Amino acid sequence: MAATSAHLRFDLALSRTALLLALHAALLHHDCAARPTPSRVVLGRRQQIDAVYNFGDSLSDTGNLLREVGAGSVVGSLPYGETLGEPTGRSSDGLLMIDYLANFLNLPYLPPYLDKSANLDHGANFAVAGATALDRSFLLDRGINVTFTNSSLSIQLQWFKTHLSSLCASKEEYCEEKLGRALFLVGEIGGNDYNYGLWYHNAIQEMKAYVPLVVGRIVDAVKVLIDLGAAHLIVPGNFPIGCHPSYLTQFEGANYDLDQNNCIEDLNEFCRFHNDQLQGAVDSLRRDHPRVTIEYADYYNVFLSLLTGADKNGFDQDSLLKACCGIGGAHNYDPSRTCGSRGVPTCTDPAKFISWDGLHLTQAAYKDLATQLFGDYLLRGKDVAA
């Protein structure tokens, strides 16, 4: 993995200080429901990021699920990881946004926390594919079947506390100083809370009742991390799931309107509903914690930009809503024969596709998203960095 990582690493000579200045300035675009941008704390010019801690699900899991379930996990076998030359536990053909963020910060790729041989000096990844924001027992009691993992956000936070207690000889020596120079990503998470309900019940309006609970759990996690010493946090929103081949296939034939991108508008409106509530919660967190930098990362609109700018980004215009690894139907997705199943083919060039397996994205898509969210701001901060 080390040789592959080096080969794929960006040739970036920009400082970590530049990224921090830039993250403060404009990490996000606001979602469709616009609101005034609140004032934010300007980061010091000498501020550095020495570690990254990530909490989330399959969009950022770099190998925890693989270590939870072992060889039985589909992400532990090719074609997953084929662009890297080997499966790594990532739900993609290659790297994820969290990997490119580490590149931008000139830090090693985040090791999965459950890899007990990993060096965690520069942070750890607590994300687990299939994880939910709400506890599994809570969802099961309400008839929502959580099938992949029990490692919800509260369990990931407990892992972090355990990790922290093993490192903190004293608050002055590690907790306060080290965490003050760390970047925390709290999500994307919450998507699976909705996925499990939508996949089995198709009840968009019913799932809206869970949005305040999911957002509340994310907010609670941010507060816990701030209390522990976090000073720089990013809270991402959700992607427009109405553009995913899995949902386009599942809801095909149902009476739902398509938008200008041929995505299911009702599902995308649901995502905007979640994102709007999450942005409002982030605004409140900023007001309550004026000395802490808390950014909302707009995954929704940067994803839509991949669709509208497909040609210039190198994606095949005829495959924008199709899975690279999949089979059957208008969107190359069959829920009974998913990527990794026997006889399911992979496209010849994943870099031409946005969707990898109907649920997750390709390395090429993640790279473009990361560049939009992080790379542009690196360049913007270059001239003012110390």
Rank of each mutant, 00 (worst) to 15 (best):
A281C: 06
D311Y: 00
Q277R: 15
Q279R: 15
G280M: 10
A297H: 00
F303Q: 10
E269G: 14
V292S: 06
V292K: 02
C263I: 09
G314E: 04
Q317R: 13
L285N: 09
N268D: 15
T293K: 07
A281M: 12
H274E: 07
A281K: 13
C271K: 05
N313V: 01
N313I: 00
A297N: 06
G314Q: 03
D266E: 15
R287D: 06
H289P: 09
D288Q: 10
Y299F: 08
E265I: 12
N275P: 14
R291H: 05
T308D: 03
D288K: 12
H289I: 01
D276N: 15
F270E: 06
G280K: 09
C271H: 01
G309S: 07
H274Q: 08
R286P: 09
A310G: 10
D298G: 03
C263N: 13
R291W: 01
I294T: 03
L267W: 13
L307E: 05
A297I: 02
N313F: 08
Q317P: 00
E269L: 14
F270G: 09
L267K: 13
F303P: 02
E265Q: 15
E295Q: 13
E269D: 15
E265H: 12
L304N: 03
D318C: 04
D276K: 13
Y300K: 05
F273G: 15
I294N: 02
F303E: 09
I294S: 03
S305M: 07
Q277W: 08
